[in-house]
């Protein structure tokens, strides 16, 4: 399989890259772990490629003012093994360890993964539970979006033509917060049949905060608001977890494919939501 012909440019600065991308006719290349196979299958056929891989300064994980900033070109492996994230925002690091395999994690980037917006990708569940923000840039401007406004539909994001993901911002986890990512991996592709990121905090013996990010279940990743509300204020007993998990799939049109029917996927989501919440509470 050989991609359709294209022209290739490798800018050395972000400004150059944004100028080249500004008219929306070029495709930005990050790690290429999704884009290059898609181009070989001729499912994507861009005529111009702008390689972001030669731009210094887009690959970092650093803490600033109670938040952790992650450059768009940071690889999954770097996120998985970052001592800062492991200590201060473990949910993102443990989620990154579930992505694909060693070869993919070595090359694939968080910015590329988000922009690609596969509905079964792992990061979105964690980033939704963390209430992360994404910083988007284009020639002559930038904006910051809450992650839940970023995902629009299957493979569709809020990115405008010429705009790229610049940075992902996650909170430093407050003491007493427990998190967990629970995933049913598709045995061939490694993608999430269902992935649940759970994040809970106790206060005065009750559940003070509950966040649930869900991936793989529907056409886009989402926050299970109803489940969160049902859990907050409870004691976090097993029956509370089950009641909350039941709400994860209420009103959701579940995906269906050869591997998992909609009914089975929804069942998995409820079971893994209980497991995720239980494991997060144990860590809290």
């Amino acid at each position: 399989m050989i991609p359709q012909n294209f022209t290739y440019q490798a800018p050395k600065t972000l400004e150059e890259a944004l100028a080249l991308l500004a008219d929306g006719t070029a495709k930005p290349l990050a790690g290429g772990m999704s884009l290059i196979p898609l181009m070989k299958l001729r499912l994507a056929a861009p005529e111009r490629i702008v390689d972001l891989g030669r731009i210094p300064g887009l690959n970092y994980i650093r803490e600033e003012d109670g938040k952790i900033r992650i450059g768009a070109m940071t690889t999954h492996y770097e996120i998985e093994t970052s001592p800062l994230l492991r200590a201060r925002c473990p949910l993102l690091a443990t989620t990154a360890a579930h992505i694909g395999d060693m070869q993919v994690r070595n090359v694939g980037t968080i910015g590329g993964s988000l922009a690609h917006a596969d509905p079964a990708a792992d990061y979105p569940a964690a980033l939704l539970a963390l209430e992360a923000e994404v910083r988007l840039v284009r020639a002559g401007g930038e904006r910051t979006l809450p992650i839940r406004d970023f995902f629009v539909d299957v493979f569709t994001t809020a990115l405008e033509p010429g705009e790229i993901v610049r940075e992902v911002v996650v909170p430093v986890e407050a003491p007493g917060t427990g998190t967990s990512y629970q995933k049913v991996a598709h045995p061939a592709s490694g993608f999430a049949v269902v992935g649940i990121a759970a994040r809970v905090r106790r206060g005065d013996g009750k559940i003070a905060l509950a966040r649930l990010g869900v991936t793989g279940l529907a056409s886009k990743p989402f926050r299970a608001d109803a489940a969160e509300k049902r859990l907050e204020g409870t004691d976090g007993a097993e029956t509370d977890l089950r009641a909350a998990a039941a709400a994860v799939t209420e009103g959701v049109e579940a995906n269906s494919d050869l591997y998992a029917s909609a009914e089975y996927r929804a069942h998995l989501a409820r079971v893994y939501a209980v497991r995720g919440l239980r494991s997060a509470l144990q860590a809290a």
């Binding site: 440019q9 490798a10 100028a19 020639a139």
Partner: peptide, 21 residues
């Protein structure tokens, strides 16, 4: 991917990276 067309901002003098291929 090529459906949207916006005008290039003018007056950007820095030499663009070579177009290869």
């Amino acid at each position: 991917g090529g459906a949207v067309g916006l005008l290039h901002p003018e007056g950007e003098a820095a030499p663009a990276p070579a177009v290869l291929g």
